[in-house]
Design a protein around this nucleic acid. Sequence first.
DNA 1: CTTCTAATCAACTGATTTGTTTATCAACTA
DNA 2: TAGTTGATAAACAAATCAGTTGATTAGAAG
Lengths: 119, 119
Amino acid sequence: MDARDEALDSAFMALADPVRRGIIARLSRGAATVNELAEPFDISKQAVSRHIQVLEQAQLVTRSRDAQRRPVHLNPARLEALTAWIDQYRLVREAQFRSLDAVLQTNAASRGTQEKEPS
Amino acid sequence: MDARDEALDSAFMALADPVRRGIIARLSRGAATVNELAEPFDISKQAVSRHIQVLEQAQLVTRSRDAQRRPVHLNPARLEALTAWIDQYRLVREAQFRSLDAVLQTNAASRGTQEKEPS
DNA sequence: CTTCTAATCAACTGATTTGTTTATCAACTA
DNA sequence: TAGTTGATAAACAAATCAGTTGATTAGAAG
């Protein structure tokens, strides 16, 4: 059992906010500063700064230094970790659905639709 | 700009909890009842019931009826929607990294490692 | 030194989340 | 009928989160 993974906790939580997802979307086109990232949103720069801290703690973004600026960079590796977790279960289920399809095709609806667990 | 998507809000939020991720993991091996899902956790069945409601509201799971039981089923389509969102940005960034690699190889480190923010 | 800019810290408020316990509902069973 | 089981609802406390405003650090530029 995984499910005791704080990295997944913080990463999924970080993406559960439209502002933070907007920041991710912006960063996919290149690094940006806090002021640049805050511009499209109707909240204070302090609020955006804390959103970025949330993303940074989740390791979805990293930060560098350029004089008094602190550009934010996307970290695709963490995003990949999330898709890996999801696919781990999504693909299993879909494989089972495909198997079910195969069984139904093989049996060719030979018996009456007896369903205890409906699909 | 998407980022105003409440379905993504609720889905990512739902996965930001180890109990709910454990439920997803269990359901990837087949449907289960609340009591079965609650068994591995050290919290009350009521708490698990509400976790399932969170997953249901996020449309990550569905429920059917079997007498007084209410089996919970995984909904792989929603999981796929999450990977689709993530990949939308992850792949862009990784493509840019590959392009950067190509540029670096072409230039063959001809100039000193000058890293500013290419704005 | 003084001022401006980029960014963060601190304190506070209101809303939301997570868990508990108690009580209730609905369907099966004896 | 009464009793049992599966599941939920309601009310509450503790913790956390998202936003605000105001003050503060650190570096750049005058």
